[in-house]
Amino acid sequence: MASVLIVDDASFMRMMIKDILTKNEFDIAGEAANGQEAVDMFKELSPDLVTMDITMPEKDGIAALKEIQGEHPEAKVIMCSAMGQQSMVIDAIQAGAKDFIVKPFQADRVMDAINKVLG
C-alpha cells in the first residue's frame, strides 16, 4: 500500500487528510508541520507521495518542494493550499508539483489527484 507524508502547519488539516487517506487504505508515512520538517522527513522516510501545504512558518511549501525535487527528482508531491491563484499554481507546477488542490476541498478531489499521480 502506498505511503504518504502529510505536510501542513494546521493539525486540523493533517487530521482531515489523514482521515481521507486511511479510509482509502493508504499508509501514513509521517506528518510534518513545516517545510523544513518535510524535507528532513522525506529523506528519512522516502514516502511514495507527499501532500504539501504552501503557507507555513519556517520554510514554505514551495521552497520545500524545490528542495525535495532537487535531491529526489522522482518525488511525487501534490500541493494542498488555500492559496489557489493562478500564479501560485504555475509556480508549484513549474517547481515539480504533480497536482494542485485548493483548500477547502472534498475528499473525492483529494483521492482523484492521488490516484492519478500514483496511477
Binding site: A82, G84, Q86, K103
Partner: peptide, 27 residues
C-alpha cells in the same frame, strides 16, 4: 487549529479573488 484554518481558507480564497482584480498577494 480548525478555526485558524477557517481564517486561512477565507484569506486564501480572498487572494484568489484579488488575483482576478489583478492584485497579487501573499498571506
Amino acid at each position: 487549529s480548525a478555526i485558524q484554518e477557517f481564517g486561512n481558507w477565507v484569506a486564501g480564497r480572498a487572494a484568489s479573488e484579488l488575483a482576478k482584480a489583478e492584485a497579487v498577494i501573499d498571506i
